[in-house]
């Protein structure tokens, strides 16, 4: 099978992309890394009439401003996953190392991944756990959305048809103050997650009590989800050593009703949520890791 014919335009700026989207409506699609979109087009599962190629816009490297890491939307996964990279968000690095294969990481972008909103996406889980936000440009200007607000069920987003994600912002990692964990179960190396859990903990001060804790889970339904606040807020004010990661994992799993597919049943996924949450949150609470990921 080959793609249904379409027209192609290069955007030299996000503004130009937005105006092309505004002009062509819902049949136009943005092309970032293309690692999901082009595959779907090859299989005729997606049939845009116009592709607006964002790649000419290019991407400056991630930067740290005022305690926040700002990651341009067209940042490739390989940039995040690079073991030598230190741009201040190691949880994103760990998650990016789990994304696809070397070719997917060479082309895929964080903005494209969030816009594609796959319910098994590792990067979305990491962004959610970090409490990240996205900057979105539309005809009326820029707006900021929590990643949690961006993602809506069934592989869609809160983006309007003429909006584009221009960047992602997450808090900077502070050794001794913030901790993270990422655990994933796949049926085969490099594949989409059966379940992935990202956890992020911030202490009020080094060695102090928990200020915030977030857990995000991929692979359990229609979108990547954040553990309900009533579960994670219970950890606030607690010394890290006393937090009950296992209990939280169980409670989180109990509240989810993941569906099954050819790779795993919903019930099995629920058990994984419990186990992987304990492991990820345990990592986040126990240390401020900088470990390399065994893929």
């Amino acid at each position: 099978m080959v793609a249904v014919p379409f027209a192609y335009r290069r955007a030299e700026s996000f503004e130009e992309a937005v105006s092309l989207l505004a002009e062509h409506g819902e049949d136009a699609k943005l092309l970032a890394g293309g690692q999901s979109l082009v595959a779907m087009m090859n299989l005729r599962l997606a049939r845009p009439t116009l592709l607006v190629d964002l790649n000419p816009i290019g991407s400056p490297p991630p930067s740290v401003v005022g305690g926040q890491v700002r990651i341009p939307a067209l940042t490739r996964h390989k940039t995040l996953a690079d073991p030598r990279a230190s741009f201040g968000a190691p949880l994103l690095s760990v998650a990016a190392r789990h994304v696809g294969n070397v070719r997917v990481r060479a082309r895929g972008t964080i903005g494209g991944s969030l816009a594609h909103a796959d319910p098994t996406a590792e990067l979305a889980a990491a962004c959610l756990a970090l409490g990240g936000t996205v900057s979105v440009l539309g005809p009326g200007g820029t707006r900021e959305l929590l990643v949690d607000e961006l993602l809506v069920p069934y592989s869609t987003t809160a983006l309007e048809p003429d909006e584009v994600i221009t960047g992602v912002t997450v808090p900077v990692h502070v050794a001794g103050r913030t901790g993270f964990g990422f655990h994933e179960m796949v049926r085969r190396s490099s594949d989409l997650a059966i379940v992935a859990v990202a956890a992020h903990v911030e202490l009020a001060e080094a060695g102090g009590t928990i200020a915030t804790a977030r857990v995000a889970v991929a692979g359990v339904g229609e979108r990547v989800v954040l553990a309900p606040a009533e579960l994670t807020e219970g950890l606030r004010g607690m010394p890290a050593g006393e937090a009950d990661a296992e209990g939280l994992g169980r409670a989180l799993a109990a509240g989810l009703r993941p569906s099954g597919d050819v790779h795993a049943s919903g019930e099995y996924r629920r058990r994984l949520v419990s186990v992987l949450t304990r492991r990820a949150l345990g990592d986040a609470l126990g240390r401020t890791p900088t470990r390399e990921v065994a893929a």
Binding site: R188, S189, S190, L192, V262, A295
Partner: peptide, 11 residues
């Protein structure tokens, strides 16, 4: 093909 799990070099 993504769902048909032929072993990879890492498995």
């Amino acid at each position: 093909f993504a769902d048909y799990l032929v072993p990879t070099a890492l498995d």
